[in-house]
Design a protein around this nucleic acid. Sequence first.
RNA 1: GCUCGGGUGGUGGAAUAGGUAGACACGCAGGACUUAAAAUCCUGUGAACAGAAAUGUUCGUACGGGUUCGAUUCCCGUCCCGAGCACCA
Length: 920
Amino acid sequence: MEYNFLEIEQNWHRYWSENKTFKVKTDSSKPKFYVLDMFPYPSGAGLHVGHPLGYIASDIYSRYKRLKGFNVLHPMGYDAFGLPAEQYAIQTGQHPTTTTEKNILRYREQLDRIGFSYDWSREVRTCDPSYYKWTQWAFLEMFSHWYNKKSQKARPISELVSIFEKAGNSEINAASGEVDAFTSTQWNTFSEAEKSAILMQYRVAYLGETSVNWCAALGTVLANDEVKEGLSVRGGNPVEQRKMRQWQLRVSAYAERLLFDLDKVEWSDSLKEMQRNWIGRSEGAEMIFKVSNGEQQYDLEIFTTRADTVFGATFMVLAPESEWVEKLTTGEQRSAVEEYLVNAKKKTERERMAETKKASGVFTGSFAVNPFTLQNIPVWISEYVLAGYGTGAIMAVPAHDSRDYTFARQFDLPVIPLIEGCDISSASFDAKEGIMCNSGFLNGMTVKEAIPAAINEVEKLGIGKKKINFRLRDAIFSRQRYWGEPFPIYYKDGMAMPLELKNLPLELPEVDKFLPTESGEPPLARAENWIFEGYPLEKSTMPGFAGSSAYYLRYMDPSNSNELVGKEANSYWRNVDLYIGGTEHATGHLIYSRFWNKFLFDLGYVCEPEPFKKLINQGMIQGRSNFVYRVKGGNTFVSLGLKEKYETTEIHVDVNIVSNDKLDIAAFKSWMPEYENAEFILENGEYVCGWAVEKMSKSMFNVVNPDIICTNYGADTLRMYEMFLGPLEQSKPWDTNGIDGVHRFLKRFWRLFIQKEVFAVSEEKATAKELKILHKLIKKVQEDIENFSFNTSVSAFMIATNDLYEVGCTKREILEPMTILLSPFAPHICEELWKMLGHNESISFATFPEYIEANTVENSFEYPVSFNGKLRFKLTLAIGLSVKEIEAAVLEDENTARYLSESTIKKIIVVPNKIINIVC
RNA sequence: GCUCGGGUGGUGGAAUAGGUAGACACGCAGGACUUAAAAUCCUGUGAACAGAAAUGUUCGUACGGGUUCGAUUCCCGUCCCGAGCACCA
């Protein structure tokens, strides 16, 4: 009986599915534990060996927690709406549903081979109407709520309406767009359309004009996290800024809570830091500067974090898009300003960013009054000021802000240093440290003292107040695409009207083509009868993050047709205890999900304010490419070690025909027709390939398919090897070299049970030494799994197995618990051995063995003895001696005397069970 | 530029409340079994020097300092690599 992994794995897959081994129910007699993977987008390429890394880790943890007596929810599903399926549909005319289903089937096959313990009865697909019904429902809830800043909670719109009816909007402190003040009397005289327009400014999901990232190549708008360096994350197409009327989610209302609640979750520091940056809280002051264009005077509001530097504000700058530009441009500057604006508009976002070193700008002709120095300072326009942050206008302090400094030098504006001894001859002094000077009442204070003192003064003068600003913007929620959730919204007399829950799901209509219409409308405009009760329905669809924002809730109660998640299910499963996924979702999915959850929390639908308690980011698995070297001008290939002697071209070769960097020459010849007659210059009879770490991709021929590994080595080897590769959170290249070591271990483990075709486990009592091997392992594996150090656990299994071989132990008392320990890592082989050990039930229902301290205690310890830190000899002493007794033993030892021939002992340092150091 | 990680053999990586650096694995070399191969098993494997050998000595965790009986681990400075953010006032 050899270890026949193919047969074993097949049998157990069948057993698990027939017995529904991993089906999980709400069970209040057991503590719950919820382990979640970020569900995949089912792409046409299938899984490569890098994808399952996180899934394997979460599966190990789930199995471990089950053995520890937890009721573990471990579901899986598909994030199935998205651009690639739609692009593919445009190219081939195939319906995205068809290709998506095909891809899902393939994914499922691949996942099943690896032996995951998912409860597939809870599978969700975001493109399934019975699922997106609840995405649409959540949108409707957001549409019918507003955010009360005073109570920090979302509240029903109906409540807002009754406040307006009684008191107008003056008492309301809401997260909203710009609304003029009105009284209750005025409200009651407003038309339906006027009321609707006002309420829209308050809704959590609202339709509003905004500057958006427009991607012409994709024909759609994109959210901020879908754009990087002026290019779309998907496809790398250029993105420009455009003003458009779009659906948005008022994520910014939750900025404060999203920031503070980061303290409640166990995420890595770097991930929390990324979210903190993205949310971008900064404390400062809002201040009013009096400005005049010579004819009229205005109050211009700006935001600053450096109120202490007002004395050095020598000019002001407006963003080109600012509404102040129009008001403050004087007659004689008008043509210059217009020219500048035209040029600025032409530039793409990318070009704007590329020109950070040079400043550009134009003078408006207006002047402001510095409220502290009372001097007139000019008002300029420049691209370096962003319209979307603060008020779109700044006071410029060139001495202490590098951007203002560059601008001032370019246009020859005055620079006044405000900190004693700072050097501003070639750069500004941006640090918030030093003693103030040239600053009137602030002179002599440190910067840290001066900031609050200045804000205080500003408030006293009545020209501003303390203010906290966030960078986090509202999420743009419309996409001009086909393959997404339709909005449950129709338009009646120009007013956006919500559908009701009973009308959901609003299913995606059929269209003849998946392209925008000739008039530039989204694809849904092609659908016939895309109307509700005679009124036109919204034609955009929701973005990718809509479906992934609450999927973890749906898994708790996937077949509930009345609610997203039932009260009972939610109060049992609560939230995700362990979430494993890639770091690429740090500022997208993980922000939106938290927002979505908090909104539902405000409404009382969910019982936890945070969705993911602990989060682990698994590293990326990169490809390890192999190269062959063709001698120039021929079809001869030279082995790596000899390539310096020739002039060669480096060519990627399929890693699947290379093993341990040795090329399979026959396979190479049949790989591509052009190599059929290739000749080789070998070293030691072999062709050695070069290698490099690159992204895993088809074009580099370095994609390794998990199916092939499963066929050649088995799923258990794949699982263990992926864990053995290195720390979970670290990125590392896949290297098939080395997989043999893990495979050999499994075979060795198998042979502990079966020797020479015979099941050889004995019922004999274990010795203390054997028990020690076991209990050392229990301790180590338990600690490692809890710290997610799966790589060192694998080593521990190898060591323990070798130790058992050394003492020749094949006793049940040792092997049975070891099988349980190993089962999270290598479930198939362990299930098989478990059955051979005479158990009827799956090993998944076994109990994790208890660690017993006594068995690991030795009766003696071999102390390394060092002199002045330098190791000299070893001394074996009984355990439990006092420090005094150990010192005495050291003095009596003959080795000590030998090494002490000339010097005398000054001090003996004893670290019990560690080391003895003698200082002389 | 700012923030956070990280630099250990030929390779992946172990080891940090400071205590035998290089666990485990790959690769490589040698050996056993075999007609042979595969499989399996055993031995060696950081570097330099000395020795027939057992063994010993010195150096060694990016670099330069510091604290300590003792530093991969703590502190200061420098260099390099990776990730994220980037006109956010």
